[in-house]
């Protein structure tokens, strides 16, 4: 059975449509990602599901409970880690954890097993005030506080923002281990590369869902032939390639430019040689061309453009 069910949820703030007819379901133990930039509507959905905001229309249910009528029961079974650090900065690590356990009528002892793998990393600092922790440690504490009452469903709003790649990876490893406890997780991120760490994702833009699928399912929907190209002068390279016959799109992609052809085009050595000749004629140096698999980011760009 689905632990989270959204049906036609809409919410606007004045003229701004923050969520437009959003529907999806998340099953037990699944890590479901809401992937989209700032302003896509990710936080609005979290606030509706966490019973902190009323939708204009549509229904949302968590573990069979209605987010409007049964909000009291829902609050007992969810954990919510908001995007902004929202623990008590002037309480110590241990005091924060004790406080959140007490609010839910529990204790650190009762659910220690669940948080132990995370908490041991910050336990050496348990007498330090939360405000004095580093970004990565703040997050681990916030996660512990969101887990201390053993929730069925965990909401994580942009846990990767403001922390370095080491802490970010550790954080995702922790989420993966929580899956073993059967906890259902809804996690948001503006970083396309984090999408691959989710079981399924919804790509969001301006309050609308552009696609819902497994990360593999989304990338396999990208039908246009794609090449990665680089030369010494990337600025000029992108400009030049956009003028080439048969090119559907060209954009910077890390140290390469991604060159997208129309769907009818087939990748071949002839095509590569044509591009090479085209670029040589424009005096590009150290040219490199290789076929490349589309990433979630390529798909996202394609969805926005259409």
């Amino acid at each position: 059975m689905s632990q989270i069910i959204l049906e036609n949820i809409s919410k606007s703030y004045g003229p701004l449509l923050a969520a437009q007819d959003i529907s999806f379901e998340v099953s037990k133990g699944e890590i479901f990602g809401l992937i989209g930039p700032d302003g896509a509507g990710k936080t609005t959905l979290f606030r509706i599901l966490a019973t902190l905001l009323l939708a204009d229309s549509g229904t949302a249910r968590i573990c069979g409970l209605d987010c409007v009528k049964e909000y009291r029961q829902i609050r007992k079974i969810i954990g919510y880690m908001p995007g902004r650090f929202s623990l008590y900065q002037d309480l110590t690590v241990e005091e924060n954890l004790e406080f959140f356990a007490a609010v839910f009528g529990s204790s650190i002892k009762a659910n220690y097993d669940l948080i132990a793998p995370i908490y041991v990393q910050i336990e050496p600092f348990k007498n330090r005030r939360a405000g004095a922790l580093s970004g990565g440690m703040k997050q681990k504490l916030a996660l512990c506080c969101a887990l201390i009452h053993k929730p069925e469903v965990l909401f994580l709003d942009e846990p990767g923002t403001g922390v370095d790649p080491v802490s970010r990876q550790e954080f995702w490893e922790m989420l993966a281990s929580l899956r073993a406890h059967g906890i259902t997780m809804l996690v948001s991120t503006p970083n396309m590369d984090e999408a691959e760490l989710c079981d399924r994702v919804a790509l969001l833009q301006k309050g609308k869902i552009m696609a819902i699928d497994t990360p593999k399912g989304i990338t396999s929907g990208f039908k246009s032939p794609l090449l990665a190209v680089r030369s010494v002068d990337m600025y000029q390279l992108i400009k030049d390639l956009r003028d080439m016959e048969g090119v559907a799109d060209c954009y910077a992609f890390g140290e390469y430019a991604h060159l997208k052809f129309r769907e009818s085009t087939t990748l071949s050595l002839t095509l590569t040689n044509e591009i090479l000749a085209f670029l040589n004629a424009k005096n590009h140096q150290n040219i490199e061309i290789k076929p490349v698999q589309a990433t979630i980011e390529d798909c996202f760009i394609e969805f926005i453009k259409h």
């Binding site: 930039p37 503006p190 600025y235 992108i238 910077a252 996202f300 926005i304």
Partner: peptide
């Protein structure tokens, strides 16, 4: 460019490339 959509990020990096140019 943190927090912006991938298309806007590209447009921004093109401004950066242009300045470097």
């Amino acid at each position: 460019t943190s927090g912006v959509d991938p298309l806007t990020r590209r447009q921004f990096w093109e401004l950066i490339y242009e300045a470097a140019h």
